[in-house]
């Protein structure tokens, strides 16, 4: 599974990480029991400060999405039923992202075929 952060966005980077992990957990693309990368590894991979990643992990632990078990690492938990995390509408989430992409493509003057071709290229790359 992939994470993407953008430091030019208004949303803080640690919030972007938290949001995307929650999305993946709710969509079931990360299963409970999955071990996440260490803070150092994720910070290296995303070229962030360790403190930023640590903050994201702390927020996820607060929300009972993540549990750190000492040197063994950080593991995804089953979200508690009694405190439902924000509801995820898969359809709306995907539509929002698609709308962003289409608007950007039209602003750049790209036709539909080129936009789809670029989408395929990036899909294959990731």
């Amino acid at each position: 599974m992939k994470l993407r952060v953008d430091s030019t966005l208004a949303l803080p980077v640690y919030e972007q990480i938290r949001e995307q992990v929650v999305r993946m957990v709710l969509a079931g693309t990360i299963e409970p029991g999955t071990r996440l990368p260490t803070i150092r590894q994720l910070a290296n991979d995303l070229q962030l400060a360790k403190g930023t990643v640590a903050k994201a992990y702390a927020l996820l632990e607060e929300a009972k999405i993540l549990e750190t078990r000492g040197h063994r690492g950080s593991f995804i938990l089953t979200p508690p039923k009694e405190r439902p995390v924000e509801e995820l509408d898969l359809g709306t989430a995907l539509a929002d992202s698609a709308e962003m992409y289409v608007i950007a493509a039209k602003q750049l003057g790209v036709d539909l075929d080129s936009a789809v071709s670029e989408l395929r290229r990036v899909w294959d790359r990731l």
């Binding site: 994470l3 993407r4 952060v5």
Partner: peptide, 17 residues
């Protein structure tokens, strides 16, 4: 060290190594 162009947007796998 990282050889690519500096970018504001970065991506990574969430798989532990």
């Amino acid at each position: 060290s990282f050889q690519g162009r500096p970018r504001s947007a970065r991506s990574a796998d969430i798989t532990a190594r």
